[in-house]
């Protein structure tokens, strides 16, 4: 007998449901690591105005603002697919889960574009 247990069957066809699950997990993992980072960074904001401005200068630079739009996207995906999961779990969403996914992700995408526009307006192009 040939034993088979594996982390994931990468040759299995991915339907909308499994894509949603995979991306939801990856987004969730990214967010928990971001949350750890976030709590540490905010803590460093409490060491007086000078330290605050130092940290903010870095956070308002171009690279971090671009990362922030990415973060906003990951959050929106996780949040809106999360809404889909709650609808599936409690409100018979299973019967229309593919349509739900498409509609909710479309809404999330619009919010992402809007939010990213606002975030990028905050870029401090020159330090100081």
């Amino acid at each position: 007998m040939y034993k088979r247990t594996r982390f994931y069957d990468f040759t299995y066809y991915n339907f909308i449901g499994s894509w949603a699950w995979i991306l939801h997990r990856l987004a969730g993992l990214a967010l928990i690591f971001y949350l750890c980072l976030h709590i540490w960074v905010i803590n460093s904001l409490t060491h007086g105005e000078a330290a605050f401005n130092n940290v903010m200068a870095f956070l308002n630079g171009v690279p971090f603002k671009l990362l922030e739009t990415g973060l906003w996207g990951v959050i929106l995906f996780h949040a809106f697919n999360g809404v889909r999961i709650v609808i599936i779990d409690f409100f018979k969403g299973s019967l229309v889960h593919k349509k739900l996914f498409i509609v909710l992700i479309a809404v999330a995408f619009i919010l992402w574009a809007l939010g990213s526009y606002l975030i990028l307006q905050h870029v401090q192009w020159r330090a100081g």
Binding site: E49, M56, N60, W72, G115, L118, I119, Q121, H122, Q124
Partner: peptide, 12 residues
């Protein structure tokens, strides 16, 4: 914290 300080950085 990310959107509402339009056009400028978050102020201490």
């Amino acid at each position: 914290y990310h959107f509402l300080s339009k056009g400028r950085a978050v102020n201490y």
